[in-house]
């Protein structure tokens, strides 16, 4: 009988994440995948800026801490230098979809052989709950106190849909971690994204819908409901691009 144990893909450093935040689940999924694929000892994590800024303390592999939004460019350099290593970025929505849009789109366009884990919780968490590029219409945040007014600040960016139009990108999927079934699917997607890199197939991005109970002002349970009821309407789950089809 197998006893539940911590994955070797994570260090012993305690997470700094808030109670109920789903970053912890996503970290664990990535870490389990790296361990199961047997690539931990040749992985290089690129940490970003935002709540996941300390991810270099958690993934049990080498890591580079990148400037805000620049993780895909740093990953490009690392991967071009070490093509046999496994290079991945772990980025939030502010990092990837606002300040780092150019780096993201062009890494995809080049079909850079890296894996991007994109955590979308529709808010800037680390700085205390400001409007994100992915905040929903009418969503109340610290910098949209009357709700996101799309006539003034525009519409949320749908990263997976956008990148599905980029010819170079290999694999784009959106998943969620709000229930057991979805968590299992998320792990499958993340595993595929890393397998693609091992198989030298190119750029894979997994967008993970995540919660932010603290800055959403909701209990962890209500946050999961809010994700289910609101985020999924704007951000439907599914595979948006798969150039690996027929390869198997």
């Amino acid at each position: 009988m197998e006893v539940f144990k911590k994955t070797n893909g994570l260090t012993d450093a305690p997470f700094h994440y808030c109670p109920g935040c789903t970053h912890g689940i996503i970290h664990r999924l990535v870490a389990e995948v790296l361990e199961e694929l047997g690539v931990l000892d040749r992985s290089i994590a690129i940490a970003s800026v935002g709540c996941s800024v300390f991810s270099y303390n958690y993934f049990n592999c080498d890591a580079i801490q990148a400037a805000h939004g620049r993780a895909p460019a740093v990953a490009t350099g690392a991967k071009r230098s070490m093509p046999d290593n496994i290079v991945f970025t772990y980025q939030g929505d502010g990092d990837l979809a606002a300040i780092g849009t150019a780096e993201t789109v062009h890494a995809a366009a080049r079909n850079e052989n890296i894996t991007v884990i994109f955590v979308n919780n529709a808010i800037y968490g680390m700085t205390g709950g400001q409007m994100a590029p992915t905040s929903l219409p009418n969503q109340v945040t610290q910098t949209s106190p009357y709700g996101r007014d799309v006539t003034l600040v525009g519409y949320p960016i749908k990263v997976s849909e956008m990148l599905s139009q980029v010819e170079g990108a290999t694999y784009i999927e959106r998943v969620a971690v709000d229930n057991v079934k979805n968590i299992k699917n998320a792990k499958k997607a993340i595993k595929k994204a890393f397998q693609n890199q091992i198989d030298k197939k190119g750029f894979s991005l997994i967008e993970v819908l995540s919660t932010c109970p603290t800055n959403w002002g909701k209990s962890p349970k209500d946050s999961l409901l809010w994700l289910e009821e609101n985020m999924k309407k704007n951000y439907p789950l599914g595979v948006f691009k798969d150039r690996t089809k027929g390869d198997e």
Binding site: I44, I46, I64, A66, A67, R70, A73, V74, A75, T76, G77, A78, K79, R80, S81, M82, A102, E103, V105, H106
Partner: peptide, 26 residues
């Protein structure tokens, strides 16, 4: 070697960071 025309000067220097972190001359 690797020559890459980046999408911006910002990206180019961050690619340099990525290579430099792996211990190679960039």
């Amino acid at each position: 070697g690797v020559f890459l025309q980046a999408e911006s000067e910002v990206s180019a220097i961050n690619m340099v960071i990525g290579v430099a972190a792996t211990g190679k001359r960039a």
